[in-house]
Amino acid sequence: MATFEEGLTPEQTVGPGGEIIENPRRRDYLTYAAASVAAVGAGVVVLPLVNSMNPSADVLAQSSTEVNLAAIEPGQAIKASFRKQPLFVRNLTPAEIAQADAVPVSSLRDPQTLDQRTAEGHKNWLITLGVCTHLGCVPLGAGEGESRGPFGGYFCPCHGSAYDTAGRIRQGPAPKNLEVPKYNFTSDTVVVVG
């Protein structure tokens, strides 16, 4: 009869005459193998659970947006939606382009030229997120009749950040220029953002 008072461990058995027999060490491997395989299995099960929190297929399908530019006249802008955030699409007039090019880049808080912020051959199309880089408000200026601020671009009413005709920060607390998302022109009048 096995008891713990006699100091019997799982590696020992009681023989027919009542003596204690040591089992060879190699039998432990089975227990360790079983436990490790079980641990691996448990780890693998966690993966789909965690992955289910990643964006689902319907959200990913909306990760890129097509915008039709045909109706936007020079000097006009529209507000579209990109990944559920506001997107400003502006058709710059030659005067606005010249105004943007005239600014010395070294004087800017976030130095970028208009060429760097637009696509090759489509310098008149300024496509930026409509999210102020300070704390996330939606700046004014894209809608009809909205204030364009002191620099003729966009103006954020929350804390006074002012952006120029190239969407670059000129005044106020915002640290960076309005974000330019990845986009490409599939034709002269259609652009795919994202």
Partner: peptide, 13 residues
């Protein structure tokens, strides 16, 4: 709709 088809491993859950 969403869980069974679009959510990653949603059908499994």
């Amino acid at each position: 709709g969403t869980i069974m088809r679009d959510v990653n491993a949603g059908w499994f859950l």
